[in-house]
Amino acid sequence: MPDISIGRFRGGFCVYWRVDGRRTRHQLAARTRAEAEAEAIDVYRRETFHRAPKGQTVAEMWEAYRQDLGDKPTATTMGYTGKAVLAHFGHYRPDQITTALCRDYAKKRTDSGISQGSVHTELGHLRSAMTWAKNNRLIDAAPHIERPAKPTPKERFLSKAEVASLIESASAPHIGLAIHLLFATAGRVGAILDLTWDRVDMDRAIINLRLDDATTRKGRAIVPINRGLMAALQTEKDAALSDYVVEYGGQQVSSIRKGFTNAVTRAGMDGITLHTLRHSSAVAMVSSGIRIEKVAQYLGHSNVAVTYSTYGRFAPEHLTDAAEVLEFTNLRVVK
């Protein structure tokens, strides 16, 4: 498609482009710039390829996909990511999405200070919505959604001493318990805050992080309770005021982000997020010689290859045999 431009014409908008040096201009019905940009593509295609426009907009399909997700966490997240995505893509139809449009979105977002990882996620949600639309036969084909590469995960991980320091620096018991649970179970924060006492088997020393309704997309595991965590849980169980393991004032805790950040500050650390605890758990297990297959099960990974590609390099024996093949200093040189 050649460069098409939007201009003002008779109090509204018009689209124009050049063919063999001559300018072609057409009045648009759109009343806003965003609507004009989407309509302009239809006008160009109608005038040059005689293709009639049809179908719903990206915004309509995005919302239909969110409704189909129901109460899954992704539906809530898309309520936030959609603010930026739909402002840029909402007025278009899926067949109007181009690589240039995706690149323009990525550039505008990063120029405004948004991280590359966030842009990757936002465009990933758009890709998921378009794939859903195709699978549900709302469109014939899903458009290609180009997105920036996913950033390399940060290598920061905590030692056991640092985890202990974080727990000691917590300003409230429920924050300290949550940190202890996050590290000892390698669970995600959502799983820890969802945990209820009926899924903590003190007799068998097992915690079940799974939910029966299967509303969570990412895997959750059933893990053993070690001695230190058992002592902490027994203390909290005796004082429990609700069904939730992590509680405050007898109520479920919806977020520990602020309390965790304060603990990190008081402990004199930086570059630490809640996910760092899960990452640290995996590193601690692998570096201590626990087999990758067991670590994958502990993390709730359904694909061991994912665990290996992320944490294999922390194994003590990783590449050691390969290095030995390259050993030559014990050889005698024959002259």
Rank of each mutant, 00 (worst) to 15 (best):
T276S: 09
P173R: 09
K258S: 08
L326Q: 13
K335N: 12
A322Y: 10
Q116G: 15
V163H: 09
R257L: 10
R109V: 06
R103E: 14
S169Y: 00
C14L: 11
S165P: 06
P151T: 02
A305S: 14
Y65V: 00
Q56L: 13
A161N: 13
V163L: 14
L158I: 03
R127F: 00
F89H: 03
F49C: 10
V189F: 00
V334G: 03
R204M: 12
Q116L: 14
I290W: 02
A205L: 12
P151I: 11
A38F: 01
T216S: 08
V85C: 09
K258H: 06
D95K: 01
K218G: 02
E168V: 09
G117I: 08
K150V: 00
A170N: 09
A64F: 01
A186D: 05
Y311P: 06
A87Q: 11
L233A: 06
L299W: 01
I145L: 07
A205E: 15
S287W: 02
A106Y: 10
A191H: 04
A142L: 00
Y298S: 03
R46L: 14
L241D: 11
A178H: 04
R45T: 13
N330C: 08
A184S: 14
Q251M: 13
A38T: 06
Q251K: 15
A184L: 04
T215Q: 12
L166F: 05
R291M: 11
R313E: 11
L138K: 14
V200E: 05
D71Y: 05
D42P: 13
L241W: 01
S242H: 10
L86M: 13
A263L: 04
G250W: 06
H318R: 05
V189Y: 00
T121Y: 08
A75E: 06
L138S: 03
V19A: 05
